[in-house]
Each structure stands twice: as C-alpha cells, then as structure tokens.
C-alpha cells in the first residue's frame, strides 16, 4: 500500500500538486470552478495550445522553435490587414501559406543548412518582430467591419455550447496526436529525436524530417493567428510577445523531453491547460499579472526537477 502511494506520487506528483492547487483556488475564489470561467480559460489556452501542438513536433526532433511568438504577431497582423483588403477567405489562405513559408524557412536553416536551432529561431524571433513593424508601419491594424464579418466565428463563436477556438484546438490536437502516433511521419520524428545517427543509418532522411516539423509549427502558428485576429478583431505590433515562452513552458510542463524522442501531444495539451488554469487561478486570487510569470517558471523548474529526480533516484546531480 505504502509503495503504491509512493509510486503514484512519483509518477503523478505534479498532477496531484496541480489538483491541490485547483482545490485551493476553488475554495478561495468562487468564480474559479464556474463553467463560464473554465470556458474562458480554455478559450485563452486555445491559442497557445494550438501553437504548442506544432512546437511539440519540433521539440520531439530534439530542436527548439522560439520564433513562434513574433510569427504569431506577424501572421495576426497579416490576417487582420488582409481581411480588410482581400476579404476573410483570402486572408485566411494567405495567413496559412505565410505560416507554412516561415516554418519552411526555419526548417531549411535548421534541417538542411544544419544551423543550431536555438540561434536560428531566436534570430527569427527578432527578425520577424522587425518585419512586423516594417509591414504595419508602426501602427496597429483593426478589422473594419468587425460586427458583420463571418471571420469572427473563429475567436468569438460558439458551437454546441463550446467556444469555436476550443473546438479548433481540440480537433488540431486529435489530428496532431494521430499523426505522431500512427503515421510514418510521426515515427520518423520520434526516430530522429531519439537517435538521429541511428535513424540516418536506418535510411531516414533527418533533414526532411526536421524540415517538416518546422513546417507543422509554422502551420499551427498560422491557425493560432487566425483565432487571435478573430478574437481581438485587430492586431497590435506586440500581440504575440512572450508567447514563445508560454508555449515552450506548456510543452515542458507536459513532460516532453527537450532532448527529443520522448513526449506526446496529450502531454502538451495537459501541460498547456495546467498553465492556463494556474495563471487564471492566480489572477482570481488577486495576484498581480506579473506574479503569473514568477509562479509559472517556478512550477516548471520544480516539475522538471521532480521528473529528473524520480528518473535518477536522487534529488541532486
């Protein structure tokens, strides 16, 4: 019996701590466990969550994608701006294509040129932020006919009582999870992330595998940008700032290894949702906005520590 509890704590310690936190918040803030609040959290999570799906592909190959924050800003500016110029349908198509192209560019530099992914995507983060200002001329853009356009459904709509962005996110998660678990592409991702050399010796082209992982990341960021543009009905020049870290935090919190080869989509969904509820709970408890960041990263360090400690059987290195 004692052993079972010990094992449970070790395997699901983080989840249990999270449930305790939820309970604590629920007792102190009545609004926390209401359907409205939960749907609000999920609605917020749907944007970072959507991005985290693609970033999970990249992280599973043993690489990083820090460019998604600025990429979200740029793509949101594009979808909002083009909505006014070309109409909602073409704006969506262009945004997705731009996302694919940006992902492909990252993939080219990391996969085929072989540059370090941290450097490439950090540079892209900065470069795309510059491109945003160049594109928008420094001013914020807004959707002109916000009340009439059907475009609003992605960020604001409901379907069968569920927010449309949440449905889009969950559908994305199911597809991404399916691809990783059941297709040859998924298997190649895990192979390259788990042991790149052995995968090359098994006839897998690691360059293309990495390339496509970044393309997926660009695509999911494109979808996230559509939800974001639709929800805000406009785009500030800094709308995606810091999102790259939230996304990465969610992936890590879920337990996907930064070394590659181990992790999954459902882990990311859980990680990013936990993050959403923690941040929301802190707000409801009356903490200032910045406290979220202190707590978030403390939680991540502790989570990674617990995980590592359980694996090696020691607390310290």
């Amino acid at each position: 019996m004692g052993q079972t509890i010990n094992g449970l704590l070790r395997r699901h310690g983080l989840l249990l701590a999270f449930l305790v936190f939820l309970g604590g918040v629920a007792v102190n803030a009545d609004a926390f466990l209401t359907l409205g609040n939960i749907l609000d959290v999920l609605r917020q999570v749907s944007i970072t969550g959507m991005m985290a799906l693609g970033v999970t592909f990249v992280v599973l190959t043993g690489r990083l994608d820090l460019s998604v924050g600025s990429m979200l800003t740029l793509l949101t500016v594009i979808v909002v701006d083009q909505h006014n110029v070309a109409g909602p349908f073409l704006a969506i198509v262009m945004t997705l294509l731009a996302g694919l192209a940006l992902g492909a560019f990252n993939g080219l530099l990391v996969g085929f040129v072989g540059l370090n992914s941290l450097i490439v995507t950090l540079a892209m983060l900065s470069f795309l932020q510059g491109l945003v200002l160049f594109y928008s001329g420094g001013s914020n853009v807004n959707i002109a006919n916000a009340q009439e356009t059907w475009f609003k459904v992605f960020g604001r709509g409901d379907f069968l009582g569920l927010p449309v962005p949440v449905i889009v996110f969950l559908m994305g998660a199911v597809i991404a999870g399916f691809v990783l678990q059941f297709t040859t592409f998924g298997r190649r991702i895990y192979g390259v992330g788990g042991n790149e050399t052995a995968s090359i010796f098994s006839g897998i082209d690691a360059r293309w595998t990495v390339f496509w992982a970044y393309v997926v990341s660009g695509l999911t960021t494109g979808v996230a940008a559509i939800i974001m543009g639709s929800r805000v009905m406009g785009a500030q020049n800094t709308i995606g700032q810091g999102y790259e870290l939230t996304v990465l935090a969610g992936v890590i919190l879920g337990g996907t290894s930064l070394l590659g080869g181990s992790g999954s989509i459902w882990r990311t969904v859980i990680g990013i949702s936990m993050l959403g509820f923690i941040q929301n709970g802190l707000l409801l408890l009356g903490f200032a906005y910045y406290v979220q960041w202190l707590v978030t990263w403390a939680v991540i360090i502790i989570a990674v520590w617990i995980d590592l400690g359980a694996k090696r059987g020691r607390i310290f290195a």
Binding site: R187, Y190, G191, N195, T197, A198, S199, S202, G203, I204
Partner: peptide, 19 residues
C-alpha cells in the same frame, strides 16, 4: 549510437528502416 533508438521498444526499432 548507430544501431538503435534506445528509448524505443523492439517493435519500433525493428520497423524503423522499413516504414
């Protein structure tokens, strides 16, 4: 280093070169 993806099981390692 070259032969196996160590964190995968025997099933996935066996099919890896012949997806």
């Amino acid at each position: 280093e070259q032969g196996l993806v160590l964190m995968m099981g025997g099933r996935e390692n066996t099919s890896l070169p012949h997806l």
